[in-house]
Write a protein that binds this DNA or RNA. Structure first.
Length: 785
DNA sequence: TTAGGATTCG
């Protein structure tokens, strides 16, 4: 048999090779020499998929690396296998395995040589009298489904790793597993002799496993950069601790780490040059990514220095520009991320001689660099960091220093001792996508001349930290000038309110008045949905209604016939709970390809409120659907027909005529699908409802009073009505605006002036004619918002 | 051996 499996125990083959064969070094291999009795031994570092040549011959290409002369200039060679042997080898050869090739032909082709690779290749085929011996080590054999020592049996079974789901772990076993990182502590120096990293994994069985990983070599611990990363552990030992399973490194532990983002390239991060990784494993990663997308909470985009708030913990991705010894238990890191912290930041006093880093750069960037003081166990790691490297510092504490001295208060950055909440420092490689983005940004900042930075910084400080006198002036200004401004018709002169109420409608006026009161006082109640076609107004449905509709639609199982379509790709799974709920997600393709999550529109069947909400965090658009016999369709229009970011989009029940979901494919076929809600609504036959603020302002001047309506999408408050319900910050901002327009507890004389444009109009019913007033072409003044 | 997730002295 030309392809044989050899059982190798402790480096020795159980079955000896034919005695006439002698080992040859790659270095001594030459075209034209006689290699009849020679063999080449090496590790498979690369293999290509089995293909067929034009004449129908099977063809399989691998790269073999000499395990011994690794340091020599030439340590690997291409091996081209033809015919039946190609087919056999493709079945059983895996990365990392040791291979012996005998009876080969040495061929030299005038192609560009790769570094370290021999400029000849080996031609191998049964017809050419070649033989290949694949070694199966004892370790691999243990986990073979068929662990018999019988060679013939082994020959028919490809060595394969078995992965244990997290709900099937047993005390005292050594297993291989996959998991999504739910929590991690970046490697730190333990109290023993090794580095330690603690990692908590979850998988679709919804069971958690916390692993304590130790290694004297930092590189052999998994390279996890964020929650949501996916890991593959080989040979991790399972033990029971406090009634729960825990993982711990054992001999031969190895790991691969993958970006957990759906659609990102499946490239393992590993220190190991040799690892097995095949199509099947790629599929596992992709499935886990999709599962994680709706089951793992990923913290939002990492904080920037420009977005820090006092009294919180955050992770910072940054570049190290300086470092200095402070004392025995603390160490200073000077870092920047290209943005400016909105608060004055503290500068830790250090001796100039202790400061490491480029002085000129530190001076140029002095307004953008912040000092981070790291303590205790982090000191040793911090000392070893290289200036210029990219870091992610986890769980930095921002502390507002008490302003009990004369200095203005400032913000301090501490990395406290200990590793709670994953507190620590990680070095990111330049290949990391976040680092690439940061680098590009830092370069753009450096390009601006330093004068620009100077003026930008001083301006920021002045506007953020005005003194008390400024504040008083600001208040006075509010009382004299208008807190609202007209966006048009400035040439008109003011009309007194009494004149307006005594005139006939319809007319338009410019007024100067004070806001005595407004309704509703609970501002969130001012948000309604408006149909521009039938002019109807309705309340924004609450989440309970949506939940009921989702539960109702989840009782219909997804129709498998709809899972194969040219314009989307479907993924399905069943929940592990007692309900055994079936979920199907249809990812709409563009140019027959899946897009990046942030550009992707997906349709989901069987999802819960929470799952849908999580998907909206990752994907551009989410449309809840259900299966019919021959198509997908929208749910009841009391539910949002589209979710994008924080916004739920609704359709008018009266004016919409839902069309087939297939119409979405016309948008998907556009050159760059923008997935605008208006466009989606249009192709789906939905009359899109607009979010509006509806308020009633009671306006007064010296002559009288009138009630005017405000009907505003975004222009008046400069806040989109669509986002106010889901954004606390915007709600606060709107409340503050109203407090400026109509300060609570103030006498009429002390209220600020509003300049508004209003129109009067008639509303007639059977009984009488009534005049209404509406505010328009008016906005809140820039210094009020 | 080390850690065994679950913030803050500085």
């Amino acid at each position: 048999m030309p392809v044989q499996l050899l059982k190798i125990i402790e480096g020795q083959s159980e079955t000896p090779l034919p005695s006439h064969l002698q080992k040859e070094d790659l270095q001594h291999l030459q075209e034209g020499c006689d290699h009849t009795n020679k063999y080449i031994q090496g590790i498979v570092t690369l293999s290509y998929p089995l293909t067929k040549l034009r004449d129908g011959t099977d063809f399989f290409k691998i790269v073999l690396q000499e395990s011994e002369n690794l340091r020599s200039q030439i340590n690997s060679i291409n091996v081209l296998i033809y015919g039946k042997m190609a087919e056999d080898c493709a079945k059983i050869i895996r990365h990392g395995e040791t291979l012996i090739v005998a009876g080969f032909k040495v061929i030299k082709l005038p192609t560009a040589r790769e570094e370290g690779r021999h400029d000849c290749h080996l031609d191998v085929s049964e017809e050419g009298g070649s033989a290949i011996y694949v070694s199966v080590t004892e370790m691999v054999q243990i986990i073979l489904p068929c662990s018999s020592g019988n060679m013939t049996c082994l020959c028919s079974v490809s060595p394969k790793y078995v992965y244990t789901p997290l709900d099937h772990l047993k005390d005292g076993t050594v297993v291989n597993l996959y998991g999504v990182v739910k929590f991690f502590k970046p490697p730190y120096i333990s109290k023993g002799t090794d580095y330690c990293s603690v990692v908590t994994l979850v998988d679709p069985s919804n069971v958690k496993l916390t692993c304590s990983l130790f290694s004297g070599n930092l590189d052999s611990l998994p390279k996890i950069y964020k929650v949501g990363d996916i890991v593959r552990f080989h040979r991790i030992k399972i033990r029971e601790y406090n009634g729960q399973m825990q993982g711990i490194t054992s001999g031969g532990f190895a790991s691969l780490t993958f970006d957990g983002t759906v659609g990102a390239p499946v490239v393992p991060r590993t220190s190991s040059k040799v690892y097995t990784f095949m199509d099947e494993e790629q599929k596992t990663i992709e499935e886990l990514r999709i599962w994680a997308a709706s089951n793992i909470s990923i913290s939002g985009p990492a904080a920037k220095l420009s977005g820090v708030q006092p009294m919180l913990f955050f992770d910072l991705t940054c570049q190290l520009v300086g470092k200095a010894k402070v004392d025995g238990s603390s160490f200073l890191l000077k870092v920047w991320d290209g943005t400016k912290c909105p608060y004055p930041t503290w500068k830790v006093p250090v001796e100039a001689k202790d400061l490491e880093g480029e002085k000129v750069l530190l001076h140029q960037l002095r307004n953008l660099v912040v000092d981070i003081l790291v303590y205790d166990n982090h000191v040793q790691l911090a000392e070893s960091l290289k200036i210029g490297s990219f870091l992610r510092i986890y769980s930095i504490h921002t502390k507002l220093s008490s302003a009990d001295n004369e200095d203005a208060s400032h913000i301090e950055f501490h990395l406290h001792g200990g590793t709670c909440y994953g507190r620590g420092i990680g070095v990111l490689p330049e290949s990391n996508p976040d680092v690439k983005e940061l680098k590009a940004f830092l370069e753009s900042v450096e390009l601006r001349d330093s004068q620009n930075i100077e003026s930008m910084c001083s301006m920021d400080v002045d506007s953020t930290f005005g003194n008390v006198t400024d504040l008083e002036l600001h208040l006075q200004r509010c009382q004299q000038l208008s807190v609202t401004v007209l966006t048009d018709h400035q040439d008109l002169s003011n009309t007194e309110l009494k004149t307006i109420t005594n005139s006939t409608a319809p007319q338009q006026y410019r007024i100067r008045a004070k806001l005595k009161t407004y309704k509703p006082q609970k501002l969130h109640q001012s948000v309604k949905l408006h149909c521009s076609k039938c002019n109807s107004l309705q309340e924004v449905p609450d989440r309970d209604g949506f939940d009921i509709i989702l539960r109702d639609s989840a009782s219909t199982a997804p129709n498998p016939e709809l899972h194969i379509a040219s314009w989307y790709e479907t993924v399905t799974w069943t929940t592990q709970d007692q309900n055994q709920r079936q979920i199907a997600i249809h990812f709409v393709k563009h140019d027959e390809m899946l897009q990046h999550p942030e550009d992707t529109l997906l349709m989901i069947e069987g999802g819960t409120l929470k799952e849908i909400w999580k998907l909206t965090k990752r994907f551009k658009c989410v449309i809840p659907v259900r299966s019919t016999e021959d198509d997908l369709e929208l749910l009841d229009l009391s539910a949002p027909f589209l979710l994008q970011g924080n916004v739920k989009y609704y359709g008018c029940k009266q004016c919409s005529t839902p069309k087939s979901m297939k119409n979405l494919s016309s948008i998907a076929a556009e050159q760059q699908p923008s997935w605008e809600p208006t466009e989606i609504a249009q192709v789906l036959g939905i009359e899109l409802l607009q979010y509006v603020f509806i308020m009633n302002f009671t306006l007064v001047d010296e002559t009288g009073a009138l009630n005017a309506y405000l009907f505003d999408h975004e222009k008046f408050f400069q806040i989109p009505a669509s986002e106010i319900l889901t954004n606390d910050f915007l709600q606060q901002k709107m409340q503050m605006t109203m407090n400026t327009l109509c300060p609570p507890g103030r006498k009429l004389g002390d209220l600020p002036w509003l300049e508004c444009f209003i129109r009067s109009y008639n509303v007639r019913d059977a009984m009488k004619n009534q005049v209404y007033y509406q505010i328009f072409d008016t906005t809140v003044a820039e210094d009020v918002v």
